[in-house]
Nucleic acid binder design. Structure first.
Lengths: 219, 219
DNA sequence: TTGTTCATAGAACTTATGTTCAATAGTATA
DNA sequence: TATACTATTGAACATAAGTTCTATGAACAA
């Protein structure tokens, strides 16, 4: 959409609508705009709004009070899409995660889904607090939060989160020779070996919860 | 403020107002609420709203269309305050950082300032992409982003970012015996020794840029 | 029972708000 | 000059929307 150049007054009006909206939580009325810009007729304000609408800067819902909306409000929309309150799962439940219904009690952490290669922002990502030092050679320390993309499969070499003996464990995922290996990154620990039956990764009491796509640490 | 327990319907109405607001950009009218909940009188909706207002869940501006506002709208207000677009500094400029005026070209990353122990969200934090493996024993790898609280001083033992020979370097800060030591966490590297003249940490071409308070990694 | 509170309904009313029509200058353009 | 577009005004209008008052039935406690 090619947007025409706006006059000073048009820019001011647009700015006023945005500011009013962000301050009050709702858009201004025609008369509120009139008052602000010393326009003595509501039709004056209306004139400008419909002009801005035609140029694509505003959406106007007819016959609705406060029915104006700024189009392409970058500062809000982009910032919102680059921000996601990721749930941090403490204990691992027996069943699959219910990421869709975040518990308000649970710990949450704002993350940038884009940075972790996730475009969707809904329930794809979750965090998990790492216990122990079994992945220390990968720079994953006790207390770190790993950012996990929830998915039921993984590629050879991925670092994954799996449920193993009622615990969530972070390991490197290896597959080959008819078996799956969950490999720690610490010589003091032994790898976990599981028979690979092809399809589902659920051999002996194990379930793949997701792939680790990032890490966040507070010092 | 002690909030009374809400009935199912009250919760639903509150949720509806929030949802409507986030979708439309403005709050619903009494009649829209009536329609949603099959209330045949505007007074029915009004009754609930003023009740919720008394309990502190809503703000109502009298005689204003769409003049309702959810109080303590956690999803928006807290989300905003718990989110900060932190600049990621690529190269280190000669002078002090100008964190106050973020360049739109520069890389940015949404972080949770609370998680990193920072209450202010303005220009206190910045990110720095780590080069090399001199801090690998601390789990800080090449390519990681360290979250830095900008400050000109540090305590013994802090991991800091310092400008050293026109480069930003991440090291452990040690002070004692009349000198400052910038200590790598990798036996393959040698510590940097600087004479300590008390006040400013600017001995030989060195400047403390901040203290590392966190780490973010994308895999 | 009686009285109270809760939840809702109906109607009338006032005000807020968007819409429409007519008119007036100023300015640019043909 | 004539024409068109821009910016604004004024007034009247229709409807959207908040307010007020009265009334009713259900649940509940005294």
């Amino acid at each position: 959409m090619i947007m025409a150049i706006l006059s000073k007054k048009q820019q001011d009006i647009l700015a006023f609508i945005e500011k009013y909206h962000s301050q009050c939580g709702y858009p201004p009325t025609l008369r509120e705009i009139c008052k602000k810009f010393s326009i003595s007729s509501t039709n004056g304000a209306r004139y400008h709004l419909h002009r801005l609408k035609q140029m694509g800067y505003l959406e106007i819902e007819p016959n609705k009070s406060r029915g104006v909306k700024c189009v392409g409000n970058v500062s809000q929309q982009q910032e919102k899409s680059r921000s996601f309150r990721m749930p941090i799962l403490g204990s691992v439940p027996a069943g699959p995660f219910d990421l869709a219904s975040p518990d308000s009690n649970e710990e949450q952490l704002t993350v940038d889904p884009e940075f972790f290669g996730s475009r969707k922002q809904e329930p794809e990502l979750f965090g998990l607090r790492v216990k122990g030092d079994s992945m220390i050679d990968e720079g994953i320390h006790d207390g770190d939060i790993v950012v996990v993309r929830a998915q039921p499969n993984a590629n050879d070499g991925d670092i994954v989160v799996a449920r193993w003996e009622e615990e969530a464990t972070v390991k490197r995922f290896r597959r080959g020779g008819g078996q799956i290996i969950l490999e720690p990154a610490n010589p003091a620990y032994n790898p976990i070996l599981i028979d690979d039956h092809g399809g589902k990764e659920e051999g002996q009491d194990i379930a793949l919860l997701g792939v680790v796509v990032g890490l966040i640490r507070s010092m």
